[in-house]
């Protein structure tokens, strides 16, 4: 037991280390960051200068807001499409179901970078470059989400769905009132996965966004680095801390609920 805790603590520390180093560096003056000796705790606090510089030079709140809009938009649409699709593939019988599922599996094999160019051309052709639509639309249909939900919904007892039909629910009501509430663990896991990956995504925003108006947090850090910070690592780390802070806070606040959701949504009739 104690051995297991020790191993877990060690792994946890290993994972946490870069983040702690980033936070520490954001509090130090540059001269201290590049010192040969390794020390986490700053001798002189330069937090005010570092964070002040970031807040003064770039619209941090605006980037964060863009991040919320883009990640929220992506997640909402992903759920809107993937939950009914996963339900249909798992529980409904219709001609072409096998083919549709095969297409989903095929979609899983395509790396996201492959369709980037055609998508860019399409966005540019439609005059959508540098807009929220361009940031959100390509990700609204997630084959991974469809696959995940299909696998999860497959475990729901058929009798539960039959009971719902007898109680007067249509398929649409069943999806949102019975299936999704009982798939809370899968939905939570997917939401974390989706939000984290799109919040941190640099590849696609870099392609379709020009300028500050629609820049996401990750892009914001990049802009700050190239335009403002130069080699001011302290300020850069401060920018990185600010951009990742919402994710960390959101996770800490929601952690209890996530765990609760996973623990209580057992599907024993």
């Amino acid at each position: 037991m104690t051995a297991r805790i020790a191993v877990l603590a060690l792994l946890g520390a290993l994972v946490l280390m870069p983040y702690l180093w980033m936070v520490a560096a954001s509090l130090k003056p540059v001269s201290e960051i590049f010192r040969a000796s390794l020390s986490l705790w700053p001798e002189h606090f330069a937090a005010a200068e570092n964070y002040g510089k970031v807040l003064a030079r770039v619209p941090v709140l605006h980037y964060l807001w863009n991040g919320v809009v883009v990640c929220g938009g992506i997640l909402v649409f992903q759920l809107l499409f993937a939950v009914p699709a996963g339900y249909a593939l798992a529980k409904l019988r219709f001609p072409g179901r096998g083919l549709a599922f095969g297409a989903v599996m095929l979609g899983l094999l395509v790396p996201p970078h492959v369709p980037a160019l055609p998508l860019y051309v399409a966005a540019s052709g439609l005059g959508l470059l540098d807009s929220y639509t361009a940031l959100i639309a390509p990700f609204t249909i997630s084959v991974f989400a469809i696959f995940l939900f299909r696998q999860f919904f497959g475990a729901l007892p058929d009798d539960l769905l039959h009971a719902a039909r007898l109680d007067g629910m249509g398929e649409w009501s069943i999806v949102w009132r019975v299936v999704l509430p009982n798939a809370w663990p899968a939905a939570t896991a997917f939401a974390i996965f989706s939000v984290v990956s799109h919040w941190n995504d640099l590849f696609w925003p870099l392609i379709v966004v020009q300028g500050h108006a629609h820049a996401t947090p990750a892009l914001g850090v990049l802009y700050f680095r190239s335009e403002e910070a130069g080699d001011d690592f302290g300020a850069m780390m401060a920018a990185a801390v600010l951009m990742t802070l919402p994710l960390v806070l959101a996770f800490l606040l929601a952690q209890r609920r996530f765990v609760e959701g996973i623990a209580t949504t057992g599907l024993k009739g």
């Binding site: 007892p157 009798d159 039959h162 009971a163 019975v178 009739g269």
Partner: peptide
């Protein structure tokens, strides 16, 4: 139903 099929949530 034999399995009751109550809505768990």
């Amino acid at each position: 139903f034999q399995s009751y099929a109550l809505y768990p949530h």
